[in-house]
Amino acid sequence: MSTTYPNGFPYVRTFFAWAIALLLFFPLLWLGLTAFKTEMQAIAVPPQLIFTPTLSSFVEVQQRSDYLLYAKNSLITSLVSTILGLMIAAPAAYSMAFFRTKRTRDILMWMLSTKMMPAVGALVPVYVMAQTTGLLDSLPALIIVFTLSNLPIMVWMLYSAFKEVPNDILEAVRLDGATVWDEFRHVILPLTMGGIASTGLLCLVLAWNEAFWSLNLTSANAGTLAALIASYSSPEGLFWAKLSAASLLAIAPIIVFGWFSQKQLVQGLTFGAVK
């Protein structure tokens, strides 16, 4: 099969594409390899590419800390914050997409601007609030923070998904005698299912990977997998093999999940980009 390239140099282009792909993938590959080494193999110089794999690091990680507890916390916080976020963002996006006012654009920009602020800027007030309400190191605290911090992105994504629904169709539904809820359930929801799914998937990934707040607001009880990974960088030095094993355990579910939903994710991020 022959492929024609618009400006020649097929090998050069292919080479660079592969080089960049490998560069991006290398840390993950190294993480995967190190996880199956012993601590000695992990710090060996020169680095070993060929070695006898061992599960000892995984065993130690499981012995030292309860992986399942952290995984459960990650699962609960990301799922609940995503569902909660969708429930809050959908009505907001609905009103902004279909009942535009002069300030709709400004409100959207303002919401996005909150994402520009470094999270650490809000650390002290959020920490104090969590402390005074007794929510420190609890799942509700994380869920609330995750939901709120993902909300601007959710509203934006749902807004662009909803805007794709032609106005005529909404008017037709209203003339057909639909209430706002009927309109949402029977028409907007099925027509924008793709966009809603992508929004949910992205926020699930973002919440799962969130580290800043889980490190700062939790310790033993409500720690997520991010906190588990961090616990392996101890004052006595890094234990590379165990750190890698813990990291692999933490990211594996979301990588598998992302792999299967990548089409949805890409669609959601480019929604409305091409008319």
């Binding site: 005529d168 008017e171 209203r174 027509l191």
Partner: peptide
């Protein structure tokens, strides 16, 4: 009275059928 309660039916230029 809102559209839904006026007991009118409209045929739109774009047809505005429910695509799903």
């Amino acid at each position: 009275v809102p559209s839904a309660k006026r007991d009118l039916a409209m045929v739109f230029q774009s047809y505005a059928l429910y695509p799903h």
